[in-house]
Amino acid sequence: MTLTIAIPVHDDEAFLLRLLGRLARLGCADQLVVVDDGSPTPLDHAALCAAATLPADRLTLLRHDTAQGPGIARNVALAHVDSDHLLYLDADDLPTRELPPLLADLASQTFDFCIFRHHDTRSEMERRWGPEQLDARLWRAAGTDIGALTPVGPKAAASLMQTANYPWNKIYRTDFLRAHNIGCSDLAVHEDIELHWRSFLAADHILASDRISVIHFVDADGDRLTNRLGPERLAVFTALDRIAAEIATREADPLPLALFALGLIGWIHDHLLPELRPAFADRARDWLNRHVDPALYPAIDAARPKIWADIDQLLVPAATG
């Protein structure tokens, strides 16, 4: 099994050097592909290799002269991958010591992708190690929270689909992504929704690992893409429309996407700039009316009894009427 780790980066050299140094110490990547997405000061290949003590031939550095977004950067990286497996990481992520054992677990396996657990630093407020509570519940519901490696059947996949759609909690078979033309959207945020959902919809062989292999750092007061709460958040419906259309074409179960979308819509609405909430509510109401059949409401209520109360009542008047 050979592995490439692909890393989009924009004006984030300090975090990138921290990540590259950790990867060098873990020794778990055959190839590193870094895409400098329009950093004001271009990254230097030799300087990166020297600072991270990496051989020059193990790191490929690509550059966009103007920022095009992390989704496009990841898609560009995929085109330069020579290994049979791929892991996306963001510059401010850190792999843990569990990543090499995970790769050893996977070495003899055949799979389209393996989803693994991660640690979210927001969990530390509750003195927990692992993902946030909703994701932890979904892993338990899938029956994949105990045991180093578990095959994922349709029922488990329906739960894991609803977990946070991060690009960096899955190890992909490179040819699987290419055969199904699976990549990220060209959106400023929510660019990873299509990568996550289309992977689940297209895969025949999914594995899940309970090894917590990456730390995801969240700074509520930071200036990262995840902290953006402006009009770019309204583009979420572009990604959700595409996934809903693919689910309809495949005649797949629409319930997991409905649950995922309701939770995401509620989170965005609660965090969005107040002046954007009316327009967002209109877009959300339109999306729900088009893609969430009222026949699903009992199943939604059974799965998450409080979900309607978690979002502004203006978003779902038909459900509360």
Rank of each mutant, 00 (worst) to 15 (best):
S39C: 05
L134D: 06
F116Y: 15
I300C: 01
E275Y: 09
A202Q: 15
A244S: 06
L99F: 13
A29W: 08
C49G: 11
E246S: 03
G71F: 11
D253S: 04
A318R: 06
P274S: 14
L273H: 09
P167W: 09
L134M: 10
E251T: 12
P254F: 08
L264M: 14
L234V: 02
L255V: 11
D282C: 07
E275C: 03
T96D: 01
G263C: 03
D12E: 15
H205L: 12
N227H: 07
Q162W: 11
I193G: 00
I268C: 03
I215H: 02
R198D: 03
Q313R: 02
S83P: 09
T66R: 15
V152D: 01
L94Q: 02
D36F: 14
V76D: 04
P256K: 06
L187M: 08
S185Y: 06
A248N: 03
E232G: 14
A67W: 05
D82S: 14
D65I: 03
Y166D: 00
V152T: 05
T66K: 06
A148S: 14
T110Y: 04
R117H: 03
L134G: 04
A14E: 15
T2G: 12
C114S: 07
P298Y: 05
T66D: 15
A295V: 09
R22N: 07
A281E: 13
S199H: 14
E232Y: 08
T150Q: 15
F111V: 04
L20F: 09
L262M: 14
L149Q: 02
D44E: 07
Q68A: 14
T144F: 01
I7S: 00
H10N: 09
I182E: 00
L87G: 10
S108L: 08
Y172K: 00
A91N: 02
T53P: 00
H269A: 05
L296R: 02
A245L: 11
A319H: 10
R18W: 09
L264P: 05
A279Y: 09
R283Y: 06
T53I: 01
W287Y: 05
I193N: 00
K306F: 09
L106R: 04
L314R: 12
L48S: 07
A157E: 03
L288S: 05
L314A: 10
N169W: 07
P8R: 07
L61F: 13
I307H: 00
L19I: 06
V292A: 15
A281G: 11
L62Q: 04
A248F: 05
E132Q: 14
P8M: 14
P70L: 13
R285F: 04
A245H: 12
D241I: 11
L103C: 13
D219V: 08
Q109D: 11
G69H: 02
A302H: 07
E132V: 14
R18L: 10
G130Y: 02
R250D: 01
D210E: 12
G143S: 02
F260Y: 15
I72E: 03
D120I: 03
I212T: 13
R233A: 12
P254H: 08
F200Y: 15
E124N: 13
P167E: 10
W139V: 01
S213T: 08
T238L: 13
A164V: 02
